[in-house]
Amino acid sequence: MRYITILAAALLFGGCVSEVQPWEKATLAKDGMKEGGANPLVKKYEEHIYYSKEATKGGGSIGAGGCGCN
């Protein structure tokens, strides 16, 4: 599992990243690119249902490089 993670990180971030300027983030700021979508409450419902019906806990995703315009 550890090796899959390292490989995934290398594929994700190694050699294929371009420097995106702050004024080039129009697409990244769109609702369609948001982690919870346009409606965070819906995401909360979904997570709650899976937490109630399955044994897995933890692992909510964090994403903050999308817009960076705060």
Binding site: W23, K25, A26, A29, K30, C67, C69, N70
Partner: peptide
Amino acid sequence: SFFASWCPSC
């Protein structure tokens, strides 16, 4: 002042 329609803080 640089701004854009997609920028909430703007």
